[in-house]
Computed example of a mutant assay.
Amino acid sequence: MKRKKAGLLPFVMLGIIAVLCLLAPLLPLPNPEAMNITKRFALPTLQEPFGMDEFGRSVMSRLIWGTRISLVIAVTSALAAAAIGTAFGVLAGYLRGLTETLVMRSVDVLLCLPTLLMAMLFVTLYGPGTATVIPVLAVVYAPTFTRVAYACVLSVRSMEYVEATETLGASRLRIMVRTILPNISGPMLVQLSLAAASAVVLESGLSFLGLGVVPPSPSLGGMIGAARSTMAHSVGLLVWPCIVLSIVTLTMYGTCDVLRDWLDPRGGRATEVLR
């Protein structure tokens, strides 16, 4: 119980970040894309505590909206990767045979490729933008879900409750969906949170390279990339998005660790091995 109470901090911080991003359209924030050249590199004020950027845009507004876009991309791509990867992992682990060979060898090939380079390749081929980044990240993270689901299915497919369901004459689809899938939901939920946290970093890296969110739409990685040429005028344009990105990433990874400890009765050791 003490461990669970101590683990509430990442959830509280993540909840605050999520609520702030969800309420961004309702907050009295300036348009993050509206430019005012007369206020270029304006110093922080009570109305604009982070100042203005090189085009006279509100840094605070762009930070909030950039975090919102990053979280939407990360969560959506992680959910899509979880659905695709878990389905293939359960099929490979339960059906075995040719299905296992085809699925797992394909996954091994994809896992051999560097994540960032594979994402850059797909984005370069199909063009930058949110509509491209989400499916690309889903494809990049799906193999990891497949490996985790496959390992979990192998550990539960010989359990008594699975054999009892088979003896009762249940179909393979019913066994996989109604019997096996609920019993591997714990590790898959941890992997989902881990993939979402990693997707925030990867999306920021793509935006930093100009392959993610297309300007003038705000993104944390894009703000960091744009601040390289303006550091001499305002170092805060580089510092603030770096701090926000670090807080969001550390909060999400902290949530992953807490979920791992809560959902694993052995203190997270089994899930740590899978990671």
Rank of each mutant, 00 (worst) to 15 (best):
I69W: 03
I69D: 01
I69M: 03
S70W: 02
S70K: 06
V72I: 14
V72Y: 12
V72W: 13
V75L: 12
T76W: 09
T76Q: 08
L79H: 07
L79W: 04
A80H: 10
A82R: 07
A83F: 11
A83Y: 08
I84Q: 02
I84A: 07
T86F: 00
A87N: 08
A87L: 12
F88T: 02
F88I: 03
G89H: 04
V90F: 07
V90E: 07
V90H: 13
L91K: 07
A92D: 01
A92N: 00
G93C: 13
Y94F: 15
L95H: 04
R96Q: 14
G97A: 13
L98E: 04
T99P: 09
T99E: 04
E100M: 02
T101M: 12
V103E: 03
R105F: 06
V107M: 04
V107F: 11
V109Y: 09
L111M: 14
L113Y: 10
L113E: 01
L116K: 05
L117M: 13
L117D: 00
L117V: 01
L117F: 14
L117K: 12
A119E: 08
A119P: 06
M120I: 15
L121R: 07
L121M: 15
F122S: 11
V123L: 06
V123M: 05
T124N: 13
T124L: 15
T124F: 14
T124I: 08
L125W: 15
Y126S: 13
Y126H: 10
G127M: 01
G127P: 03
G127T: 10
P128A: 09
G129N: 10
G129H: 12
A131C: 02
T132E: 09
V133P: 01
I134L: 08
V136D: 03
L137M: 09
A138D: 05
A138W: 10
A138C: 03
V140R: 00
A142F: 01
P143W: 07
F145C: 04
F145E: 02
T146H: 06
R147C: 04
R147E: 03
V148Y: 01
Y150W: 12
A151T: 05
C152A: 12
L154N: 13
S155L: 11
V156K: 01
V156G: 02
R157L: 10
S158C: 08
S158Y: 13
S158G: 11
E160S: 11
Y161Q: 04
Y161F: 14
V162N: 06
V162C: 06
V162I: 11
E163V: 00
E163T: 00
A164Y: 00
A164N: 03
A164W: 00
T167G: 00
T167I: 14
G169N: 14
S171E: 10
S171I: 12
R172I: 13
R172Q: 09
R172H: 12
L173Y: 05
L173N: 02
L173H: 08
R174V: 14
R174K: 15
I175D: 05
I175N: 08
V177R: 14
R178E: 08
R178Y: 14
I180L: 11
L181S: 06
P182I: 08
N183Q: 13
N183F: 05
S185Q: 12
S185A: 15
G186N: 09
P187D: 02
P187I: 07
M188E: 01
M188P: 02
L189Q: 05
L189Y: 04
V190H: 08
V190R: 04
L192H: 10
L194P: 02
L194M: 13
